[in-house]
Design a protein around this nucleic acid. Structure first.
Length: 579
RNA sequence: GCCCCGGUAGCUCAGCCGGAUAGAGCAGCCGCCUCCUAAGCGGCAGGUCGGACGUUCGAAUCGUCUCCGGGGCGCCA
């Protein structure tokens, strides 16, 4: 409808330009908005205000000129000029209620569009290191990423979603060593000092217990062998400890512990995300990238193109050539490739797999990392715009009015699993996605728990369930829903009009939310739609004796139910038939 | 010091590629179930849009400066 009015306006202006009544060089940018105030009409355009200056005319006179030049349209009931020069359009009810038939035909694909033109997009989210359970911070990235996956799909993109598993590198070694030390403790080795920078959480004990239960003393060494590690600080001692562990266990046994630790956690994470209805097309292993030689190849490719130099025994990527604030190490002086090196290889791999556009969702704490990855893409000859990084701000947890400190290492955090059990998947996902990503979020656990019934998600779901309930009551009252008897022209009261307006907004909303990567728009829309429905429900009876009216009302609420279900689905929230 | 995000009602937040009286939820107060689920509805009250200056016919929205809060600036991942 907006599009239709915009076309009407632009052709009127073009006609005025052709007649020489407006300067030919005017480049009108037509904006048509939903009028905020119903008294102003259904749709409004400020085009006369925008063009007044370049045209050298009084805005109201210009508006009048444009209105007089408008071609008649059956959908337009009337047009008027208001305020400083707004052009307001009143639309025929029949044109507005057409949306009901459109929804009936399109069903669960109502609102979908082809804005994405089937562009191949790879969307990466969460990708947390498998060094511990997911916590509530990851939950936000998961809810946002998965909602975006669904939203981009609805907007016509060919989306592939992926979790990048950091199953290589030093953190995984620390994890393996942490498990092993706990295992030695369980095996009866006394006097082992557990390093402060090892992973402290209870889940480490659980994995160690599995190792001990299934393999007895196979991995046991005497605690004395672990004494007197060289190193000036905790990190250096940790490196020495890792080296000592490999030496004492031998590569094969070390690899086994390493694998047990990481696969246990990856499985745990996968289950968690599954339960949270967060879906992936693929889980991509960093280790596989290393084993295949892709990381070496990526570094070599950078070097061959002259973007790498050697300094202090390490290899540096000259990212400053592409706007980064300093150069970055890709190979350390000990020969170990950095996480950055494998990340370059991973993003190169995404390109090689044919993805024209890459979207990464990262925690806001990684924002400083963006320029270097972008720089690497450029150095490798890729368009830097092909990588889009969306930063999700932190969710700060509060309990009892106090901030809860979080650290994976110390094992002090609230897990996503706990959150799910406390507030449920529906409420948690809706809550997460209600705030736009760049907004800091205060997550009050007490509120989420104690007042979960007042969570906005129930308000929306209740609207859906209420509609289902009305249809269940039909038979009890001796009626049958007969769509062809519906007289949609009878839907003329305020409640019906605003509900119909709301339904008309949905396709535009999907387009906008997808383009701006803002699923929160859907959450807000759903609440407004539910509000419009609940008001309607309270003000009018649907199951009336007048068949024309009754069926029209049923058609309207059925369409409403469909739109609510579609919107909830985009957020990964269920649409219950009863509550 | 540099970079990113935020600062709108008592609280949590929408609105931000400029437009008509700044919105919602929660909390507060007053009403509404002989009627399709009251997890609901109607109403009242509540705001220097952090501050200053600038651009503009018009600024919560754009620009500059500034104050406050969060985060980031490793041969960690």
């Amino acid at each position: 409808m907006k599009q239709q009015i915009a076309t009407l306006l632009s052709s009127a202006i073009a006609r005025l330009q052709a007649d020489g009544r407006l300067p030919a060089e005017l480049q009108p940018r037509i904006q048509v908005e939903n009028a905020r105030n119903k008294a102003h009409g259904d749709l409004a355009s400020n085009v006369a205000l925008m063009l007044a200056k370049p045209a050298g005319m009084n805005p109201r006179e210009l508006a009048q000129l444009i209105v007089d030049a408008l071609a008649p349209d059956p959908a337009v009931k009337s047009v008027n000029i208001a305020g400083p020069g707004f052009i307001n359009f009143f639309i025929e009810n029949a044109a507005l209620s057409d949306v009901i038939s459109v929804i009936e035909q399109a069903g669960c694909s109502f609102g979908h569009c082809d804005a994405g033109k089937k562009e191949k997009v790879i969307l990466e989210y969460v990708s947390a290191n498998p060094t511990g359970p997911l916590h509530v911070g990851h939950g936000r990235g998961a809810a946002y990423g998965d909602a975006l996956r669904r939203l981009l799909g609805a907007a016509g993109y060919d989306v592939h979603s992926e979790y990048y598993v950091n199953d290589a590198g030093r953190q995984m070694d620390i994890l393996a060593v942490s498990v092993w030390l706990r295992y030695l403790d369980l095996a009866g080795e006394a006097g082992i000092a557990f390093p402060p920078n090892a992973y402290q959480g209870d889940y480490i004990w659980d994995i160690a217990a599995t190792l001990h239960r299934e393999h007895g003393d196979d991995y046991r060494v005497t605690a004395l062998d672990l004494d007197s590690l060289p190193g000036d600080d905790d990190e250096a001692k940790m490196d020495a400890l890792i080296a000592r562990a490999r030496e004492l266990l031998g590569e094969e046994k070390y690899a086994f512990v390493h694998h047990l630790a990481h696969s246990t956690l990856v499985d745990y994470i996968r289950d968690d995300l599954n339960e949270f209805r967060v879906e992936y097309d693929a889980w991509f292993s960093e280790k596989s990238l290393m084993d295949s030689g892709a990381v070496d190849a990526a570094v070599e490719k950078l070097r061959a193109s002259g973007h790498v130099y050697e300094k202090d025994g390490a290899w540096w990527f000259r990212s400053t050539d592409f706007g980064d604030e300093k150069d970055r190490v890709v190979v350390r002086d000990n020969g170990v490739k950095t996480y950055f090196a494998s990340d370059i290889a991973y993003h190169l791999n995404k390109q090689e797999r044919g993805f024209e556009h890459m979207i990464d969702i990262w925690g806001a704490d990684h924002h400083g990392y963006v320029p270097r990855v972008r720089a690497a893409m450029q150095a490798l000859g890729q368009n830097p715009d092909s990588l889009e990084v969306l930063l999700v701000q932190f969710a700060v947890l509060y309990r009892g009015g106090k901030k809860i400190p979080m650290s994976t290492r110390s094992g002090e955090f609230v897990t996503l699993r706990e959150l799910r059990h406390e507030v449920g998947t529906d409420a948690a996902r809706f809550f997460y996605v209600m705030r736009k990503a760049e907004q800091h979020m205060d997550f009050d656990l007490d509120l989420a728990k104690s007042q979960s019934n007042e969570n906005p998600v129930y308000y929306v779901q209740y609207a859906h369930a209420r509609i289902a309930s009305v249809f269940r009551q039909l038979g009890d009252k001796g009626f049958v829903y007969a769509r062809d008897e519906a007289d949609l022209a009878r839907l003329d009261n305020d409640a019906e009009q605003s509900l119909i307006d709301q339904l008309n907004r949905y396709p535009e909303l999907i387009r906008s939310a997808a383009a701006k990567r803002e699923p929160h728009q859907i959450a807000y829309f759903l609440r407004e739609t539910a509000q419009a429905f609940h008001s309607y429900y309270n003000a009018h009876q649907f199951l009336v004796n007048d068949a024309g009216l009754r069926n029209a009302r049923l058609a309207l609420i059925k369409a409403t139910q469909q739109v609510i279900a579609n919107g909830l689905d985009l957020l990964g929230v269920s649409a219950p038939e009863t509550m």
